[in-house]
């Protein structure tokens, strides 16, 4: 078996330690940036839905500001955003390289998209439910927690798996410019040294990772759809 693997991908087998470390780095970046941007995305996405015109906490100023910031951030290509954020990253993380250096730009790159996904998910909640909750004496905050969030778990899970899969892509890009992880591995060990098997292994691992995320998302959706 091992022999077969060595014959199949000689370079990757030699670099096994580094490959392992890269996988862990990618997982770390995805997990940290994912968790932080999920929290921020929930906050901003919810804020967009409740403050929009006709929303339960309608507020023109907050809505317009959020809406514009998200649009601006989403219009900057990630690779450029990375460079723009270098000073801020150093300030927050103390470094601009490695996993720690990657988290700040990854959060900036993911949160606006995440916010839109959450906004779309919460917008799918039937207005009638909001009205019913109001008629039962719920406050706006109770409506956020008990109706908006609770009733759109499936939609949020769908948006989250899409966003996390995007995020995996962004970690690879960040990796290529010094953040480590599988992107870095494929670039330094694969492309630079012309070891194609290293690149192919990276691809296979990323495909598996994406499939796992999608699978987890689908499970949550299925569990919450009645």
């Amino acid at each position: 078996m091992e022999e077969f693997l060595i014959r199949l991908m000689p370079n990757a087998m030699k670099d096994l330690n580094i490959l392992g470390k890269s996988i862990i780095e990618t997982l770390q970046m995805t997990a940290w940036a994912g968790i932080i941007s999920f929290v921020l995305g929930m906050v901003f996405g919810t804020a967009l839905v409740v403050t929009r015109p006709g929303g339960i906490m309608q507020n023109r100023v907050i809505y317009q500001i959020l809406d514009k910031i998200i649009n601006i951030l989403r219009s900057i290509p990630f690779i450029i955003l990375l460079f723009c954020l270098l000073p801020l990253t150093r300030l927050i993380s103390g470094t601009a390289i490695g996993v720690r250096g990657a988290i700040v730009p990854l959060v900036f790159g993911t949160t606006p998209f995440f916010s839109r996904q959450i906004e779309a998910a919460l917008s799918g909640v039937d207005e009638g439910l909001i009205e019913a909750a109001q008629s039962m004496g719920n406050s706006s905050w109770e409506i956020v927690f008990r109706i908006y969030w609770r009733e759109s778990i499936a939609a949020i899970a769908r948006g989250t798996s899409i966003t996390l899969i995007n995020l995996v892509g962004l970690t690879a890009m960040a990796g290529a410019v010094g953040a480590g992880g599988l992107g870095n591995f494929a670039y330094i060990y694969g492309q630079q040294r012309n070891h194609m098997d290293d690149i192919y292994v990276t691809v296979v691992i990323l495909v598996v990772l994406v499939m796992l995320i999608q699978l987890a998302g689908n499970l949550i959706v299925k569990h919450n759809t009645h």
Partner: peptide, 13 residues
Amino acid sequence: IGMIFQHFNLMPS
């Protein structure tokens, strides 16, 4: 004050 609606407005989840 209870209220009921044309489209019932039950929470599907």
